[in-house]
């Protein structure tokens, strides 16, 4: 679509700029505000040959900055995850939080913390994301297995949402149980898992989430054109040369990995994946080649904004970020549910 290529690039440039602005605000304001010169000095203190950073600078470098970056990455993951699920199930009201992926991943990571505490296992840095992925696969698979119609193998949306609700409740109750018996402080906080928070951010989490987010997004982009073909139906996509079953497996796997890894470090953050692709479709249509990159950017930006609100609204205390995203996301979800005329 050469005719639109210019505006597409312009829109991406605007989104990148806006995301950087939000990032700047996000590192500057919080429980403690850092002035721009102070941020500059903190960053300069990382250069070799400089004196050790001061306590204030260390707070910035080891708490504020990794949190802001992790927030961008997690937001991007959830945005891309939402775009992929919607494309895959050809349904605009699907998102990772609704079909069980997030709660399964949260369960996997909570289990890891509890068992790790009991049996002293899990030395590798990849154990936690791996546990989250396994939980995410388990729950997503469970939802789609149970929601599948016997006649044509396709999941009807009502069945999908209700099954998602039930599986979410199941995994959340399991998390509740784990939190109850847990000794690990992170696993002990059920709020952490069910409402999501970025307060535990550190550079190690940033590294791991960066790998899954960037890797997953790049893989997804390779299949963007095939996902477009899926919009006119599975049969038609097959006639256009798409191996639909293979595509489904690849996209579902990418989605589970990026969402589960993000969830492992932040808990369940709902509705970002639902809202973000819609904003982009309104701005620039449904082409997945654009939608995936755009959802990464808008997801990053929106989650950073939400985190900023979560940190500033009750300063110096903070809200779980999931409260903010749900407050914005639920009305959008209800609006979509009302507007689309689904056959129930």
């Amino acid at each position: 679509m050469t005719k639109h290529f210019g505006t597409e690039r312009a829109l991406l440039a605007v989104l990148i700029f806006a995301t950087l602005l939000v990032l700047a605000a996000s590192v500057r304001y919080g429980a403690v505000d850092f002035s721009i010169p102070a941020i500059g000095r903190a960053l300069v203190s990382l250069l070799p040959g400089r004196p050790e950073p001061t306590l204030e600078q260390r707070i910035f470098l080891e708490l504020r900055l990794p949190r802001a970056v992790l927030c961008l990455l997690v937001g991007a993951s959830l945005g891309v995850g939402g775009a992929l699920m919607q494309a895959l199930f050809q349904n605009p009201i699907v998102e990772p939080g609704l079909v069980g992926t997030s709660s399964g991943a949260a369960f996997g990571s909570a289990l890891f913390f509890v068992l790790g505490g009991v049996f002293q296992i899990g030395a590798s840095r990849w154990s936690l994301p791996l546990a989250a992925c396994l939980g995410g696969i388990l729950s997503t698979y469970l939802v789609f297995l149970l929601a599948r119609s016997r006649e044509d193998g396709r999941a009807s949306i009502v069945l999908l949402l209700l099954t998602g609700l039930a599986v979410n409740a199941l995994f959340m109750s399991a998390i509740g149980f784990l939190s109850y018996i847990a000794r690990d402080p992170q696993a002990r906080s059920i709020t952490f898992w069910s409402l999501g928070t970025l307060s535990g951010a550190n550079w190690r989490a940033v590294q791991i989430v960066a790998v899954s987010t960037v890797g997953g997004t790049l893989v997804a982009l390779r299949y963007a054109k095939q996902l477009n073909a899926l919009m006119i139906g599975e049969e038609e996509a097959t006639y256009l040369g798409v191996n639909v079953n293979r595509l489904k497996w690849i996209i579902l796997s990418v989605n589970v990995v990026i969402v589960a890894v993000a969830t492992a470090f932040t808990g369940v953050i709902s509705f970002v994946g639902l809202v973000v692709p819609h904003i982009l479709r309104m701005l620039r249509g449904s082409d997945n080649r654009f939608l995936i990159v755009g959802s990464a950017l808008v997801g990053a930006m929106l989650l950073s904004l939400a985190d900023l609100i979560a940190r500033l609204s009750l300063r110096p205390a903070e809200l779980p970020i999931g409260i903010v995203t749900s407050a914005v996301g639920v009305p959008v979800f209800l609006f979509l549910l009302r507007r689309r005329r689904y056959v129930f």
Binding site: Q90, P92, N228, M231, G233, S286, D287
Partner: peptide, 9 residues
């Protein structure tokens, strides 16, 4: 189609 697409697309 499940999502808005232009005729050209």
């Amino acid at each position: 189609v499940a999502f808005p697409l232009t005729v050209r697309e």
